[in-house]
Amino acid sequence: MNKVICLHTSDNVGVALSNLKKGDIISHNSLRIKLLDNIDFGHKVALMPIEKEKKIIKYGVSIGIVTQHILAGSHVHTQNMESLYMKQFTKK
């Protein structure tokens, strides 16, 4: 059974399909990734290392920008990414 769903082949994050624990192993494209954080259902996990200033890709598109380097298996959320849209929006 898949523990995460990857919604598009170009995504760099997956979505947890249940509450996953730190240390759990998930598989993605035949790679095994050890979770570095607890990942609750519906939350995102990095499927690869993602550098600062790079984009988080989900549904095959950018959903925001990385604010600090993310290791594969980490929880991806407000602590390490932010909206690009709101930035542009509030600048106006």
Partner: peptide, 22 residues
């Protein structure tokens, strides 16, 4: 939305938008 795992407005909207396909 944030508690449920959504981080940004564009991510939330993509969830609804994904009904339109590609």
């Amino acid at each position: 939305n944030a508690k449920g795992g959504l981080t940004t407005i564009e991510e939330k909207s993509m969830g609804a938008y994904s009904k339109s396909g590609n």
